[in-house]
Design a protein around this nucleic acid. Structure first.
Lengths: 151, 151
DNA sequence: CACAACTATATTGTGCGCAACTCAATAGCG
DNA sequence: CGCTATTGAGTTGCGCACAATATAGTTGTG
């Protein structure tokens, strides 16, 4: 390594890069675990929300839960619809809204991925407590960035 | 919330989603901080490596450092070249290799982003020690996923 | 009721990220 | 030396992310 004019830039690489690399590593692992379901990782997250809610959700509600906008969700949901996992229907009460609901196939898929979290946990090699602590730190990080952004 | 058939899936959302969301929140913050340089976050990471190394690097070496492959790096480097920040030249000693080096403009840019890490640190609202601890956890996570992948 | 302001979704364009593949250059081996 | 295997970069195709914009539907106000 050479003498550095701005050493803080190297530190930056050490701090923010692992976050970036970790997300890609986790996503990659999900590709393997979800192979067979045909789901991508973002699609899996959408399905998790739908399984959890068990009720039709508008695109905006889904977006708020996952912090994604319509530019990302619309094509993603169309792919899930094409795969026969969800329905997309205009809300009769407000024709601006599109309600997303599970099909029978979509509901049935939940059982097929029930083992995924445990498999991923094993791959990550951390205990449940470590995972929860990490979760809390990351959640706080997101909240901080959100508030400082609007400031 | 309804009764859940597979409660571990909710946990999955709680654990892996924050990682995914945190990365996107950080990336978004970088867009703001890097506005004016014309750099994207991945481009900034490439520049960090080049500033750090201060020597021409092959595409593969860059990829190993950032865990990115040629499919991602080639177009990204072409954009950096078009912006006048890097040069791309075939290695005379091995015509398969492309050596990436900084231009004067590229080198000069380092000074302009020297304040970015501190600004980001402020946005994240965590102490230096917390940041380092988080970095270590994430680095270990990546290593674990790497080893479990090949197993 | 007319009409402006607002809301929800969709579309467009750019830049990753990565798998799969192509192609040229090099290394290794008989 | 000739041939095969390997390596390094580039290309293609797909699916995100997200900013910016468009459009249809709804609400509020005079």
């Amino acid at each position: 390594m050479s003498g550095r004019t701005y050493p803080q830039l190297a530190l930056d690489l050490q701090l923010c890069f692992p976050l970036y690399a970790a997300t890609r590593a986790v996503t990659k692992r999900y590709v393997t675990l979800l192979k067979g379901t045909g789901l991508t990782y973002p699609q899996y997250l959408v399905m998790l929300v739908l399984w959890e809610t068990e009720e039709p959700l508008s695109v905006t509600s889904l977006g708020q839960r996952l912090r994604l906008d319509s530019g990302t969700l619309t094509p993603l949901l169309k792919r899930l619809e094409a795969a026969g996992l969800v329905r997309r229907e205009r809300d009769p009460g407000d024709e601006r809204r599109v309600l997303v609901s599970l099909t029978e196939d979509g509901r049935a898929l939940e059982e097929q991925v029930a083992g995924v979290p445990q498999q991923l946990g094993a791959s990550m090699g951390i205990t449940r407590d470590e995972a929860l602590a990490l979760r809390d730190q990351l959640t706080e990080l997101v909240d901080q960035l959100d508030t400082s952004e609007s400031a």
